[in-house]
Design a binder for these strands. Structure first.
Length: 780
RNA sequence: GCGAGAGUGGCGGAAUUGGCAGACGCGCCAGAUUUAGGAUCUGGUGUCCUAUGGACGUGGGGGUUCAAAUCCCCCCUUUCGCACCA
């Protein structure tokens, strides 16, 4: 587990994450597993820094006090955290190794600096990774993001795109999350096709539809494409440069809105079609993205929605080259593009071929001519990791006039984050204002250089923390390979689904990168993943602006943490979350009290518990409960596990109120209560320990073995068989489990109610489902 | 627009190799206990009707089947993710 101390206290989401996860771990511990349940703080980063700015304190200070306060709260959860292994990503002992990670990637060409259009958030005053932009808005502050050309640091996550994709198949992760990552990586297969610009260079386009090549009527460059300036004709240059300026001024939402009408201008240049030799005009338009594919699109208006819209607006020709077999498409009458696969027409020797085969042949043909080849493109971009903010790990690079970017030697790590910095955001890296920090000599040539003023994205810190948990105080290495071999990868990871395309993708990438360098024995960091859902209030997400926050502290004071965490587990499916109800928690409070009272009133310490003294039926219910609860906790179905425990408690209350002669013997009841306490303990650890002591034990209940289900005890002698007539339940009977089928049929047919329904009618069919029901079909 | 999930009593939710729909809990009703309130214990509680029986019932409509919340087709609502990705 890893807390993010961006605020000053734990909210209900933290509890929902940590409480049930701890119950699962306690259950596993009782099952005999060795459990390591660490807790630490992801204490660098924008939210922590913004909190500090808002409260007018230094982030080092506010982070410290937040961590201290939250640690106290975490202790209330009653989890098995191993505080000796706690880490803080903002401590030099930790970020020394985050910097080491950066340098390791840099030395293997997996980190690089590049001038590129990046996402810039005005209000945060920093660039953001693609993953941190949602619908054109900053993920954190929700202000619009603009495009800016900047030199930034990137991690080469795209080199691992295929691996990251393939690795998903072997993970025990939610289907949804794997799908999300699959879509985010966005692999698409197609063809690179080379077009010659008339009187100039050659350019490549990427297309997934080589079968439509004969339908290209123009080509579109992204406005930012570096060649635009070169190819634009003198007559068109004024228009072109005006359009480029206009594009730059637009923010991402304006620009990428699909609602917006398409815009663009003609460049005055032409390309030559590689197969027909036709001259096709080159346009620029902002519907083409510079960062995807080659930044240039071959436009096929007849078979692509966007190209069609553009062509209609600017009166460009539409040429049909794919049809459904036996039909005819008139370009002048089309109201929308025909985007389905079909059969090639107007395509010279390829006519009559279906799309898929035709596309393949066109690609092969182009390859022979040297004007094309198969290609794969990804939606995934390299991970932009530099931030123009203060509260993060400094990038351990010294920029030298003559040597370029030079890594800080490992023995000089960490590059300490200076405390004396004006960190208020103003669109420039705050560290750049600290002369003392910036001044450095080049480790390579000894000349004066300057430090990199940027800090790393917090997601870099959290991409490897699980490795550090094992040996947080190790001084000469980031992690201990022996311990890593013994404990990792993580057997069970629990966290929010909001991390699907950020943390969980980054951590996978880092593990794979380190594995490829021979530094880790595994490729995937988190073998099994479960997401907790979101707890809502009145159907809405809790937020300050809605004023519907449920404060854990209030409920803790009133009910205690056992009841609080059990209620969260009882509310609904763990992965779905649920809607908080102030009254619903009383059910759990009663449950806890009933368990407490049952032990207090009916357990008699002077009598040794004895399973044999339990009535058969009660024993069966006990073992059924053990079986179900074990299965349910295993798969994080805490709500049904608690239901089963409630049923067991109800059974206990029932049997103790039976008349003296049919009540279970004290030894049997003692046994039943002992088991109950063990089964409840992972859900309510405080109650579990307390009752265990009352039962006369001096050691922790979590050192006990989890009860196992005796299959024998589950056996019953009689079972209820339902009788259906024409699909409706008309009767039910109790029969021996080993009853002969013929005998059962006889009994069924003799039943009075069956006779009633049969009289004057004809039995057409009789179906026996052993152990469940007998279904009769009758007709008059 | 594309992708994934969800829709079951007054409420939260169970039940998925098709086999008694509504487990468990909240709320509500009744009884017991109590001077009273609270707490506790017991029983009841899907809807409707001509009521020891019967009809209907899992977003809507159709289908397969002896049997459908569950499988198939169409539609509606809703949540989440992506969104001009060529």
């Amino acid at each position: 587990m890893f807390s993010y101390p961006s605020g000053d206290r734990l909210h209900i989401g933290h509890w929902y994450n940590y409480g049930p996860a701890d119950s699962w771990a306690r259950f596993k511990k009782m099952q005999g597993y060795t459990i390591f349940e660490p807790m630490g703080f992801d204490s660098f980063g924008l939210p922590a820094e913004n909190y500090a700015i808002k409260h007018g304190v230094h982030p080092a200070k506010s982070t410290r006090s937040n961590i201290d306060f939250i640690t106290g709260q975490l202790n209330q959860i009653g989890a098995m955290y191993d505080w000796d292994h706690a880490i803080e990503t903002s401590s030099p002992q930790y970020y020394k190794w985050t910097q080491w990670l950066f340098l390791t990637l840099f030395k293997h060409d997996l980190a690089y600096q590049s001038e590129a259009p990046v996402n810039w958030c005005e209000s945060c005053g920093t660039v953001l990774a693609n993953e941190q932009v949602h619908e054109g808005h900053c993920e954190r502050c929700e202000n619009p993001v603009i495009r800016k050309e900047m030199k930034q640091w990137f991690f080469r996550i795209t080199s691992f795109a295929d691996e990251l994709l393939a690795g998903l198949d072997h993970l025990d992760w939610p289907e949804k999350t794997r799908k999300l990552q699959t879509n985010w990586i966005g692999r698409s297969e197609g063809t690179h096709i080379t077009f010659k610009i008339k009187g100039s260079d050659e350019i490549d386009v990427f297309t997934t539809r080589p079968d439509t090549l004969y339908g290209v009527t123009y080509v579109v460059f992204a406005p930012e494409h570096p060649l635009v300036e070169k190819v634009a004709s003198d007559e068109q240059w004024a228009d072109v440069s005006e359009y480029i300026t206009l594009t730059r001024s637009r923010n991402e939402i304006e620009r990428t809105s699909t609602e917006r009408e398409k815009t663009g201008v003609f460049t005055g240049a032409y390309v030559i079609h590689p197969l027909t030799g036709a001259e096709l005009p080159i346009w620029i338009a902002d519907y083409v993205l510079a960062s995807y594919g080659t930044g240039i699109v071959m436009a096929v208006p007849a078979h692509d929605e966007r190209d069609f819209e553009f062509a209609r607006k600017f009166d460009l020709p539409v040429r049909v080259v794919i049809t459904q077999p036996g039909t005819f498409l008139d370009p002048s009458l089309m109201e929308t593009a025909f985007t389905e696969p079909g059969v090639m027409v107007n395509s010279s020797e390829f006519n009559g071929l279906p799309s898929s085969e035709g596309g393949r042949l066109v690609t092969e043909h182009l390859a022979r001519l040297g004007s094309g080849e198969q290609a794969v493109t990804y939606r995934l971009r390299d991970w932009l990791i530099s931030r123009q903010r203060y509260w993060g790990a400094p990038i351990p690079i010294i920029h030298c006039e003559s040597c370029g970017p030079v890594p800080v030697p490992e023995e000089e790590l960490p590059v300490l984050l200076p405390e004396d910095v004006d960190f208020r955001p103003r669109g420039k890296a705050p560290l750049a204002t600290n002369k003392q920090f910036m001044a450095a000599t080049c480790p390579q040539c000894g000349e004066a250089g300057r430090r990199d003023p940027d800090t790393m994205d917090t997601f870099v810190c959290s991409s490897w923390y699980y490795l550090r948990y094992l040996s947080p105080n190790l001084e000469d290495k980031p992690w201990d390979p022996e311990l890593v071999k013994r404990w990792l990868p993580v057997a069970q990871y629990v966290g929010g689904s909001e991390h699907a395309t950020m943390h969980l993708l980054y951590a996978r990438f880092i593990a794979r990168a380190l594995h490829s360098l021979g530094l880790l024995h595994f490729q995937e960091p988190f073998t099994r993943l479960v997401h907790q859902g979101i707890i809502t209030r009145d159907g809405d997400k809790m937020s300050k602006s809605r004023g519907n926050i449920v404060s854990p502290d209030d409920f803790l004071t009133r009910y205690g943490s056992d009841v609080f965490r059990m209620y969260m587990m009882f509310m609904g499916d763990y992965g779905e979350g649920g809607d908080w109800s102030d009254t619903g928690i009383t059910g759990i409070e009663r449950f806890r009290n009933r368990v407490w009272r049952a032990v207090g009133e009916w357990y008699q310490p002077e009598v040794a518990p004895a399973a044999a003294e339990l009535p058969k039926e009660t024993n069966r219910i006990l073992h059924y409960t053990i079986q179900q609860v074990t299965r349910d906790i295993e798969q994080f179905s805490f709500n049904t596990a608690l239901s089963r425990l409630m049923e067991l408690v109800n059974e206990i209350y029932r049997v103790v109120q039976l008349p003296e002669n049919s009540r279970p013997a004290t030894a049997g009841l003692n046994f039943l209560l002992t088991r109950l306490v063990q089964l409840v303990a992972p859900f309510a650890p405080h109650l579990g320990e307390e009752l265990w002591q009352q039962l006369g034990h001096e050691t922790s209940i979590f050192a006990e073995t989890w009860p196992t289900c005796d299959e024998q005890a589950l056996q019953v002698e009689e079972q209820t068989i339902v009788i259906q007539i024409n699909g409706k339940v008309r009767d039910s009977i109790s029969v021996p489990v080993d009853i002969d089928q013929k005998e059962l049929e006889q009994i069924v047919l003799q039943r009075e109610r069956v006779q009633q329904h049969l009289s004057g009618k004809q039995l057409q069919k009789l179906i026996v489902v052993p152990g469940k029901l007998v279904s009769l079909v009758v007709k008059s």
